[in-house]
Design a protein around this nucleic acid. Structure first.
Length: 118
DNA sequence: CTTCTGACGAAAT
DNA sequence: CATTTCGCCAGAA
């Protein structure tokens, strides 16, 4: 039997696909990975360390707000070109990530069904 | 081994 | 709009 990537590793794989200047949400990542809840994505991000090369700052909540008030998350995103409004929210229509390509999903063992039902 | 705790989201109330 | 409920990974003590 094959021991594939752990749940957290799968979550990191997806987040690493988010390009600079774009953001994704916990809910979006959970749907792409397919087998995890948004909460588990939060758990995974909490375990991220600098050496993992995971662009954790590009993951915001469904309201378009940063998850870590008081951190440099907002500044890091602004440095990539992401704009925040007066309420500290990001316009997901403009900066939201479209998601990985079907080819990437299939090449990495992810299910593409989430894409069909969007 | 057990218990605790953390970067969320959607629906119901 | 505020609050509650459930979902159930991984590391530390």
């Amino acid at each position: 039997m094959t021991t594939g990537p752990s749940v957290n590793e799968r979550i990191y794989m997806v987040i690493r696909q988010v390009p600079p200047g774009k953001v994704t949400t916990y809910g979006q990542v959970s749907k792409i990975v397919g087998t995890v809840s948004a909460r588990q994505v939060g758990y995974a991000l909490a375990a991220v360390r600098e050496a993992m090369n995971v662009p954790w700052q590009r993951v915001v909540n469904s309201q378009g707000k940063v998850s870590l008030p008081g951190s440099d998350q907002q500044h890091m995103l602004e440095a990539e070109g992401v704009v925040f409004d007066a309420q500290g929210r990001i316009d997901l229509k403009r900066f939201g990530w479209s998601g990985p390509e079907d080819a990437w999903l299939e090449a990495n063992g992810f299910d593409v069904t989430w894409f069909w039902s969007r």
